[in-house]
Nucleic acid binder design. Structure first.
Lengths: 241, 241
DNA sequence: TTCAAAAAATCTTGTATAAGAGTTATAAGA
DNA sequence: TCTTATAACTCTTATACAAGATTTTTTGAA
């Protein structure tokens, strides 16, 4: 099936954007095998090298995964990848292999607050699901977090029996929502009484607050996650190259 | 001049490593113009495309900067680049264009503490220069920081009349020390009396501590920078893709 | 004859070469 | 100042081979 390119700019960019569009509009799902370079080149009427350049760019952006001999797959979330890629808290010795478990405190299904609507680009009467839980690292409570999700994109989430520790695979498989990028703002705040109690601290103790907004490929904000972390024995790692 | 490749693995990787080695051992200095793709291909006895792949990888690693029509240059620090790339504190409205200025509190030239020697891989009797200062953002004190540098790599630093706000260009131009990568560990801590006073806070107020170790291309740790930031009106930004 | 294992063939990405055209940047000359 | 020439990267195409994975075919044993 031929799909001649009709856009502007370098061909490899047009191929890149066309592939992104197919991923975004659901024609290719996470984990799907894309056609081979040769087949895509034939379909788009460009050289194999041009397709390869587009695919290599997509791979650099973590939108696809390429395996020699197997093919090119739309990137998909796994719990391991989420922990490795999206979780930046580690122990004092750089340990990132400690068990991360979660204890659910509460869930709600309610109208969004003004802040929530603002952060998630919801209409004023929009609904959200919220999840409040404690994350234990190596068996100890380290993080209190509240996750806010647009209800219309996660229909049925409140009826799931169990929520796993890592949620991004669930968003993807059950709701077709794939997290692609997260912006985090970090601050030091004083612990409030409720979270202090959960984390074994006194009110007023310093906590590292991580305010995350997670987006899909097309930039739609789909998760607001506020985490408050006890950094007595852990820290947030950031690498700048 | 011909320099046939003599290593193992893909040719583009060998070219990459040979170029890195020349940068590390000072044959090519920050800001230097590298030979053209065509000339390098001739020197190493590989195709231009192979050189290109190596250079593109180097560019992706921020070791070189490529300009069409001009050439490929060894990356060099500027104050603007340091602020843009290595400085992650921004205002509540996402502002990163606010003036960043510094007020020097103290400098020392002394024997390294055990922690300092450990962090900077110094011998037990190694000497360090330290710089303690306050950084003002938009005219307000926001960050207290202490910078620890191995004295043997920064001979004469303590005799400079003025230290600019951004130091990495100075490290590079005066001492031949180029910062390539920084690892930062972030924690929330309670303000101690001295830094609280400088930042206009009360002792015990939560501060965001950024513990940075900066390294050169070959992995040598050359700067330990401990910053304590008032995050009432600012935050540390981190993006995950 | 059937089934399982091994070998061969095929597919697909990764590496490499070669060449040409286009675009951008700069310097020199009119 | 404008135009032209030169330098150098960027984009594109084509081709070939290596390496890894999967599928198909062949062979041998039960």
């Amino acid at each position: 099936m031929k799909t001649p390119l009709a856009g502007h700019g370098p061909l490899y960019r047009q191929v890149h954007e066309l592939i992104v569009a197919r991923i975004v509009d659901g024609q290719w799902q996470p984990g799907d095998l894309l056609p081979s370079e040769f087949d895509l080149a034939d379909e788009f009427g460009v050289s194999q090298g041009t397709v390869r350049k587009a695919l290599n760019t997509l791979a650099a952006e973590n939108l696809v995964v390429r395996h020699q001999g197997k093919g090119t797959f739309v990137a998909a979330h796994t719990p391991q990848r989420e922990l490795f890629h999206f979780f930046h808290i580690e122990g004092a010795d750089g340990a990132r292999q400690m068990p991360v478990t979660s204890r659910l405190l509460a869930t709600t299904n309610r109208r969004a607050s003004r802040d929530e609507a603002d952060r998630l680009d919801l209409p004023a009467n929009g609904h959200v699901f919220t999840i409040e839980r404690i994350r234990d690292l190596g068996g100890r409570p380290v993080i209190w977090e509240r996750i806010v999700l647009p209800a219309r994109m996660f229909v049925g989430l409140d009826q799931l029996d169990e929520l796993p520790n890592e949620l991004y695979q669930i968003y993807e498989e059950f709701f077709g929502v794939t997290i692609h990028r997260a912006i985090e703002e970090l601050r030091a705040v004083a612990a409030e009484r409720a979270e202090a109690r959960h984390l074994g601290l006194t009110a007023g103790a310093p906590l590292l607050e991580v305010d995350r907004l997670a987006e899909t490929v097309d930039g739609t904000p789909v998760e607001w996650r506020l985490s408050r972390c006890d950094t007595r024995a852990h820290h947030y790692l950031s690498e700048i190259v």
